[in-house]
Write a protein that binds this DNA or RNA. Structure first.
Lengths: 229, 229
DNA sequence: GGCAAGTAAATTGTATCCAATTGACGAAAA
DNA sequence: TTTTCGTCAATTGGATACAATTTACTTGCC
């Protein structure tokens, strides 16, 4: 996921994305270019580029001459995203049932153990891990295009969950993850897709809104003041 | 498709994208920031932003400190893209069979007539129109997220076709487009998906490479010197 | 007291400037 | 002749400076 490639832009991009997914930056929150830039010790140019990319990913929206805000997906938009996600993840399962790479199951099981370890804390970490399971699944298909799209919708779903979910209660999710692995191992496409459908449906099922603003600087100081050299 | 939204960045973005799709800018061709900027009468900053977005769309790749190039999808990458495209377009058909908007068929038929009109000229225009049929189809689902992804893969497919297709021979394509509309109208999911599968498969079937460089400035001068004010 | 207009502050949009990295060419040594 | 090292040109990476736009506040009028 984290595009470790080149430059500061990517670093800021990753940091901001992480902050959004982990709910440190809440939906609707403003992201002034110089405030963010100061926090990370880089110029507006860098922040700008990162924001452009985040907008492409649907995690941020920008209004002309107004600035960037953490996206606030509407319920309708949320539903559309889930629709696409279900479609893509079904394809992932279809492919994996046909061709799962060697170390695939090891990686998946390792990840599930990770999730189980973080089960207690109901916080941002478990949300992130739950998402990364699906991203890992997609990556195992070897289809990078597919993996990228899955990654994008999963990220947006995390954002949606942070808006509409009353509590994440990832316990059942982890359990379903295991079941999905099992079904794939048995090559049982239909069952795997059914569980996945239920899994996503359950995830999408939780509603209720809860926005609340906060101070930007305090939050960002957590996420890598170390970029300043 | 064309994000008519706000600024110069978008304009340059659209122009470059169009130039790539219409094969004016050929795969592998360099896109130096200042050359492009001069042509359009804008500064590097703008071009830079546009290039970042094009990279996100997979139409351009950038190498650190080397610059941007029109993407040259490998055969493997091409196959991955077609795999995703098939998956997404099947979903489009599934949705449209359930809920096609009022004016849907009119729009589709109008577009097909457009394609038939351009049938003679085997050039860039028919490639673009063929792609836009699928984008229109996706847009009619009302799912903007889905539409955006379809749009992206269709664009990349156009690029791929421009690399690997010996001739576009859009005649059969237009015919299949009509068949797809018909099948959807009858609510025959399976048949529509089958035709679509064949359609994409046929499109993907044509192979053979053909790259050839050219002068950047001469090309870009076609695409909107008018941005200079 | 409320509303409107004008002005000032804040923030983005864009351009230009400097530094850093890469690739190529050429010269010198093996 | 081949290989290697060093210098130079070209181009991007990043920062700062300036212009344009929007928002918010203040002031004056009704």
């Amino acid at each position: 996921m984290s595009e470790s490639k080149n430059t500061l832009t990517n670093a800021v991009h990753d940091l901001l994305r992480k902050a959004i997914i982990e709910q440190a930056l809440k939906p609707g929150m403003r992201l002034p270019e110089d405030t963010v830039g100061e926090q990370f010790g880089v110029s507006r140019t860098i922040v700008r580029h990162a924001l452009v990319r985040l907008e492409n990913e649907g995690l941020v929206i920008t209004r002309r001459n107004r600035g960037a805000f953490v996206a606030e997906p509407s319920r309708e938009e949320a539903q559309q995203i889930f629709e696409v996600r279900r479609c893509l993840e079904h394809e992932v399962i279809r492919i994996l049932c046909d061709r799962m790479p060697e170390s695939g199951y090891d990686q998946l099981n390792a990840h599930v153990r990770l999730e189980q370890g973080a089960k207690g804390k109901d916080g941002p970490v478990s949300i992130r891990l739950a998402g990364e399971f699906h991203v890992l699944l997609a990556a195992l298909t070897g289809n990078e295009v597919l993996a990228r799209y899955v990654s994008e919708v999963v990220l947006r779903c995390s954002l949606i969950m942070s808006m509409y979910a009353r509590s994440h209660s990832s316990d059942c999710a982890v359990d379903e993850h295991s079941q999905i692995i099992e079904a794939i191992r048995e090559g049982d496409k239909d069952r795997a897709m059914h569980i996945m459908g239920h899994h996503l449906g359950a995830v999408a099922g939780r509603a209720e809104l809860s926005p609340k603003p906060d101070s930007i600087s305090a939050i960002l100081s957590h996420y890598g003041k170390e970029l300043a050299q």
